[in-house]
């Protein structure tokens, strides 16, 4: 069953109603956006459950078991619980800033999916600056972190917000550099073009030695830091002294930050899949199934990291990024450029 064919059919149906083509396009895009949004909301709920089960089995215990078969309704129960919590605002908090921070985080997380290909032909809009757009949008989360830290009117939140903003900014650079290495090789910023240049399995960028695996590893490390996961989860660590930027948030606002974090994790996994693992390419199964398999595989790897490694101290984290990842990333980029231009390893 080809999902792309279904969408195409619906689009034809809409176009045949005789509305002006601009309006048809807008309605079609709106519909696609709504579909993607609903899909992602479900994915976020699923990911929360998956995280709990994966962490539980790594620790040789069961995880949620009571709410439904193996606890699959647990996230719904948690969402209902969060919905009914009191929505507190600290005294003397900066109200507009405090109010808009989780919303910006949430919107930024979801907006990146405009340009991510879920399968062959399943992309909301094939921008020809695809990957650049995605990176620009995911950088919005820094603004929301700073807003949350400032608006909470608590010195701990401020410190936590500053630290996490510093962390995210300093790991944007290696992430962009590793992405650029792939872009140089693919010759285009468009996500669909990048996927199509990996038509065969040996053409996947992760296998294109020697720059591919290095770019992949740099990307994974930077992505873990971007999404504030261990070993880079200083902003969220309860064991540390300063509790992080979302300490004053409760109820639905907290739920927005929480969901935004999981959606971000899915985003970086989707980008890793598209850029390094061949996107939706694969034999036999439909393209969107391959995409989901690969993306959930990457999500699983991120979860595995979280439950195995201790966390780095803030200054060690920054040192690692600026003194190690950035030079390595630049060297890798130069290598990739040279490989592309000289024709070596260019299969």
């Amino acid at each position: 069953m080809e999902i792309a064919a279904i969408f195409k059919y619906l689009y034809e149906l809409l176009a045949s109603t005789g509305l002006p083509s601009m309006l048809v396009d807008i309605i079609a895009l709106g519909f696609a956006a709504v579909v993607v949004f609903l899909f992602l909301a479900l994915v976020a709920l699923f990911l929360v459950w998956l995280e709990r089960k994966v962490s539980a089995h790594i620790q040789q215990r069961f995880g949620p078991m009571r709410t439904g078969w193996h606890g699959w309704i647990q996230t719904v129960a948690d969402a209902i619980k969060l919905l009914q919590k009191e929505d507190t605002t600290p005294a003397n908090a900066d109200h507009p800033v405090f109010y808009w921070a989780p919303i910006i985080a949430f919107v930024a997380a979801f907006m990146a999916y405009v340009a991510i290909p879920f399968g062959d032909g399943l992309i909301v809009s094939d921008l020809n600056i695809g990957i650049l757009f995605i990176i620009a949008i995911t950088t919005f989360t820094i603004i929301s972190l700073l807003m949350a830290g400032w608006g909470s009117n608590s010195k701990y939140a401020l410190l936590g917000g500053m630290r996490s903003a510093a962390q995210v900014v300093s790991y944007e650079v290696p992430m962009i550099i590793s992405v650029l290495a792939v872009v140089v090789f693919a010759g285009s910023l468009s996500m669909v073009d990048i996927v199509e240049s990996q038509a065969k399995i040996y053409q996947w960028y992760i296998f294109r030695l020697p720059f591919g695996p290095i770019a992949f590893i740099i990307y994974i490390i930077a992505a873990t830091a971007e999404t504030n996961r261990t070993p880079f989860d200083i902003p969220e660590a309860e064991q540390e002294l300063v509790a992080g930027f979302n300490v004053e948030y409760s109820g639905m606002k907290f739920a927005m930050f929480f969901l935004a974090e999981f959606v971000n994790m899915f985003t970086v996994s989707a980008i890793a899949t598209t850029l390094f693992l061949g996107g939706w390419q694969g034999p036999l199964l439909p393209s969107w199934v391959w995409f989901l398999i690969k993306t959930f595989g990457m999500v699983f790897v991120f979860m595995w990291f979280r439950w195995t490694y201790p966390r780095l101290r803030v200054d060690q984290l920054m040192e690692f990024s600026w003194k190690f990842l950035v030079p390595l990333g630049f060297a890798n980029l130069i290598l990739a450029g040279w490989m592309k231009s000289s024709g070596w390893f260019n299969w």
């Binding site: 539980a56 089995h57 790594i58 040789q60 215990r61 069961f62 078991m65 439950w307 195995t308 490694y309």
Partner: peptide, 21 residues
């Protein structure tokens, strides 16, 4: 050593849980 650590926790994924319901 990072990879060894990963595999040490990963091998528990195949084992049955030891907790009681």
């Amino acid at each position: 050593n990072l990879v060894i650590g990963l595999f040490t926790t990963g091998k528990h994924l195949g084992r049955h849980a030891i907790t009681l319901q």
